[in-house]
């Protein structure tokens, strides 16, 4: 899942300051699940923005809508009928959603209301942690299911650095040392040998080093 967090109110307010009629658009996918931009957060932000404008002594009109998925053109089409009655769009989706809106409604100023953070998993209710960097060449099969790219602070490939201490990373006692986790897991699986094998330098091109990436599935293209 893509995780995100609402931007500071101050920043959002600055974006929409010049406008009187705002289209506030949520997304019912990842940002709903990570409580950053679903129907409820849309309601709360709308409420906060209205309160802010009252404080400024001005009237603001906020139209709330939450799309099934903001990164698909068909869903984004739902805004078409009302878009002309607004002055600006504030998106609570991840960067993909914001750009899909911007691509479709070219005349309209589109602003993000959230910061898109990482691809993560839910550790427990209310806590999300980074698990994947989308490097394009998954190593999990040989690292015991724990990703050194996303979870080692230095993205090291051949064991921990000198900053590991009692299973924790030197950047913070809150952060597990990915290589300690990998070792424990390989041990549990009886695959200690894997750890001995040296990994070659990684080809970072599939991870974006070769420019913006795209998937084309010829069989699916209509």
């Amino acid at each position: 899942m893509i995780t995100a967090e609402q931007k500071p109110l101050e920043e959002i307010i600055a974006y929409i300051e010049p406008y009187d009629r705002i289209f506030l658009v949520g997304c019912n996918e990842c940002v709903t699940v990570c409580a950053a931009g679903g129907r409820k957060e849309v309601g709360l932000l709308a409420s906060a923005l209205r309160l802010n404008s009252m404080k400024q002594g001005k009237t603001i009109e906020i139209k709330e809508i939450t799309l099934e998925r903001q990164c698909d053109p068909e869903y984004v089409e739902e805004l078409a009928s009302d878009i002309n009655r607004t002055d600006a769009v504030l998106s609570m989706a991840c960067g993909c959603g914001v750009q899909t809106l911007a691509g479709r409604y070219k005349e309209m100023p589109i602003f993000p209301a959230v910061n898109t953070l990482f691809m993560g998993a839910s550790e427990s209710q209310g806590i999300w942690a980074e698990r994947c960097r989308g490097c394009g060449d998954c190593l999990l099969g040989i690292t015991g299911g724990i990703c050194p790219v996303a979870r080692c602070s230095k993205s090291l490939f051949n064991g921990p650095c000198g900053g590991t201490c009692s299973g924790k990373c030197e950047i913070s006692p809150e952060v597990d040392c990915a290589w300690c986790l990998i070792w424990e897991r390989l041990k549990a699986l009886g695959m200690e040998k894997r750890y001995e094998e040296l990994m070659e330098a990684k080809d970072w091109r599939p991870s974006g080093g070769g420019g913006p990436r795209k998937i084309v599935r010829k069989d699916l293209v209509l």
Binding site: V33, G38, K40
Partner: peptide, 14 residues
């Protein structure tokens, strides 16, 4: 039981 905790927590207001 009708406490409504789920309704208040639901991020999709579903």
């Amino acid at each position: 039981r009708g406490c409504g905790v789920c309704a208040a927590e639901c991020p999709a207001k579903a």
